[in-house]
Design a binder for these strands. Sequence first.
DNA 1: CAGGATCCTAGATGATACTG
DNA 2: CAGTATCATCTAGGATCCTG
Lengths: 148, 148
Amino acid sequence: MDTDMRVTYAKDCPSRTVVSVLANKWALYILGVLGRNDRPLRFTVLRRHIEGVTQKSLTQALRNLERDGLVRRTVYPTVPPRVEYSLTDLGREAGALTTAIADWSKANATRVLTARAAYDGRADDDTDGARGTEGARHTDGALGTDPR
Amino acid sequence: MDTDMRVTYAKDCPSRTVVSVLANKWALYILGVLGRNDRPLRFTVLRRHIEGVTQKSLTQALRNLERDGLVRRTVYPTVPPRVEYSLTDLGREAGALTTAIADWSKANATRVLTARAAYDGRADDDTDGARGTEGARHTDGALGTDPR
DNA sequence: CAGGATCCTAGATGATACTG
DNA sequence: CAGTATCATCTAGGATCCTG
């Protein structure tokens, strides 16, 4: 009867630190790509797989994942440089989880999008003419502007 | 041999829209809390469970989840108001996945944090005195300032 | 109690240019 | 190729005050 009083996710809980790493679009995609191929991938290849990511964001996300021991970065001192990324054991575990999310997202995208459309429809109704609820809610939504 | 050329996560892939919903700290926690208790929870209770979330962020996250059909919002027209949140079937599915992530995070926090410390240690070495790699990398890290 | 409306800023992201 | 460095931007999120 005290479930109303307990704190499930305490601020200082270490799990929060880890979650905040996984709760990242790019990190999710990286683990996904790396998890699906088990072979190490090069920076550029990785980037091609994750359409729309800038090299900066990708680099940053990779660094964070490397720092947290989820991704291994191997540098071959050749010229031109060759850097390969692969999952560590830890990363493979996490990757299984995030891949599950990506897969579920793909499988259920329609259900979600339908619900969303319905919700927006309702909102339009009782918002009358005042507006304010239109399409621009999320940042990432699938839009048409071409990848560049 | 063309796995190097294929795009795994296309920009217009609907899954990306869904992932961007789940790739959110607060959404993850909400699904987690709601998933663990199967009973509907009130706004304030929910908020207590997720330490550190502001009412704004919580409201926003809940709205998005409701919009996407993952969370059900029930309003009781009493005074004072009573609003309860619970998972839909869709939300329960997603919740299972995100809870898995939260659990894994909790279970492996040490491994991650250890790797992180090691990485930062190395960085400190070859950064010499120049600095720039210290503790402030991530936003969420467990800090000491009290919840308020 | 459960938010809505505002104001404001740190940090995330994008665009661009440069380099070992 | 695989970044690093910079500058401009943008906005999610925090702090506050208000209300049905």
